[in-house]
Computed example of a mutant assay.
Amino acid sequence: MIRAHVAALLAYVDKLDPSRAPATQEAALERLDAWADVLLDVAPRAPHPEGHDWDASHVVRRHIASSPYPIKPSDVSRPWYAFRADVIRRHAGTFEPGLHPEIDPDAAPGRAYFAALRGSLQAVAAGEQPAVTSRAIGPAALAPETPQQAYQREELVRRMKAGHRAGRDENARRLALVSQFPDLLAAMHRLPGHRMWRGSVGGNARAAAIVAEAEARAASTTREEQPV
């Protein structure tokens, strides 16, 4: 802010809180000097890419309305630096040819190009220029789901759940089968990654061979137990 902006802001402070206004001209000048020094890099107003624009007078009003303590220049500068950091974070930092018609956008980047980028960032940081934000490419709007699509989706979910239940039951069957033969169960647990085996075989040929051996033994035991 220039000194005139700070003086106008202090006049607004005294209007909202006249009981704390300086009693003498000398005290008023000292306060003006201190505030002008602290608020040198603070903009009186600045745009925000989402419409949450900065206005120093709003910060003053909010503080006086909500705080029992006298307002200090840092009560204005701290929110400003937080606002500026947020705006800079949102700024894409890209070269905008429309803002610099004197620079050929197809030419190789040179001093003028980089100077324009620096100038743009400085202007955004000072609140003199709105931030240029890049827009994410979002998905196209989906059409409402038809009854047939809803049925197909529900049927797919049903089949997936049924497949999961069948796989779980098969794992339980294999685990119970192999557990009947301690030597086979020990061999299964010695396989890499099978120390806590719960019946799944997947594509592991050695695990499948152990299960096949357990099935063969179980079948042989069943035949032996059948009466002749």
Rank of each mutant, 00 (worst) to 15 (best):
E170M: 02
V60S: 06
H63S: 10
L9I: 03
F181E: 06
E155K: 15
A141D: 13
R223Y: 15
V228P: 02
A36C: 03
Q122M: 12
A136T: 13
R165G: 12
S74M: 05
P147K: 01
A28S: 14
R90H: 13
R31T: 01
L177H: 08
A65H: 15
P139E: 07
R159H: 11
W80A: 00
H189W: 00
V60G: 05
T222S: 04
Q180V: 12
L99C: 09
A187Y: 11
S67W: 01
Q148L: 12
A112L: 13
D53W: 02
R165C: 09
N171Q: 04
Q152I: 14
V38F: 03
A108H: 00
A115T: 04
A143T: 10
P105Y: 04
D53C: 10
P139W: 09
G167N: 03
G119I: 02
R173S: 04
E215D: 01
E154H: 07
P49F: 12
R3F: 07
Y12P: 05
H58Y: 00
A43I: 03
A187T: 04
P97Q: 04
Q149S: 10
A125I: 10
R78V: 06
R158D: 11
R62I: 08
Q148M: 13
M196K: 08
G119K: 02
V59D: 02
G119E: 10
S19E: 13
R190V: 09
E26H: 07
Y81R: 09
A11E: 05
D53A: 10
L99V: 10
A4E: 10
L40N: 11
R31V: 13
S66H: 08
Y151H: 12
D33L: 11
K161N: 10
E215S: 05
T24C: 08
E50M: 12
S200K: 03
T222E: 15
V59K: 04
A85I: 00
D17Q: 03
